[in-house]
């Protein structure tokens, strides 16, 4: 990568102005990382390639609203790539419906104070906080995020009923939040 946050942000802004060179530069700078994210979710090279393509098409189409979402540029790009991969994983048509959290957040045009709050929260260490959870709970959160596992997948993996799994994970998320805030 080798690009600063500001560099990536400027590229996204240029992409919003339909700058093809900036689009390819953004791809060169972040494509491998986002490809890694897609591969981790999909575990299939052809599917991951398609998901990555979906993601960059979305980036092209929604770059003009990036500023409004209050996310750092890499977080936004990762979220778009991850959600594209999960869409494919769950057999939904890419881009169908309004299911993409990273893009849905863009529908609000006002940056508002949350942008600043999020920027300030960046230094928080989720890895450290996950270590404070029991092992299996931390694994479940990682599975959900990194592997795109659904509650159903997680319930199967940990051999518990679906509802139990959900209760379990929701409690872990509250704990995680307390740690992150602390």
């Amino acid at each position: 990568m080798g690009l600063s946050r500001g560099d990536v942000e400027r590229l996204i802004e240029r992409v919003a102005r339909r700058d093809r060179g900036a689009f390819l530069a953004l791809y060169d700078a972040t494509g491998a990382k986002l490809h890694g994210v897609c591969l981790r979710v999909l575990k299939d090279p052809a599917e991951a390639e398609d998901a990555l393509q979906d993601a960059f098409v979305k980036v092209w189409r929604h770059a003009d609203r990036y500023r409004a979402n209050g996310l750092s540029p890499m977080t936004w790009l990762i979220a778009v790539a991850r959600n594209s991969a999960i869409d494919r994983l769950r057999g939904r048509r890419a881009g169908a419906g309004g299911g993409d959290a990273a893009l849905a957040q863009l529908s609000d045009p006002a940056p508002g104070p949350e942008a600043l709050a999020v920027a300030a929260s960046q230094a928080r260490e989720i890895a450290r906080c996950l270590e404070e959870l029991p092992d299996t709970r931390a694994q479940a959160v990682r599975g959900a995020y990194l592997d795109g596992q659904s509650y159903r997948d997680l319930a199967r993996r940990f051999g518990v009923p679906l509802n139990t799994m959900r209760t379990w994970l929701r409690r872990s998320l509250v704990k995680l939040r307390e740690c992150l805030e602390g």
Partner: peptide, 10 residues
């Protein structure tokens, strides 16, 4: 947004 930012670090 905060969660998205936090999880992205994973």
């Amino acid at each position: 947004a905060e969660w998205t930012e936090d999880f992205a670090r994973l």
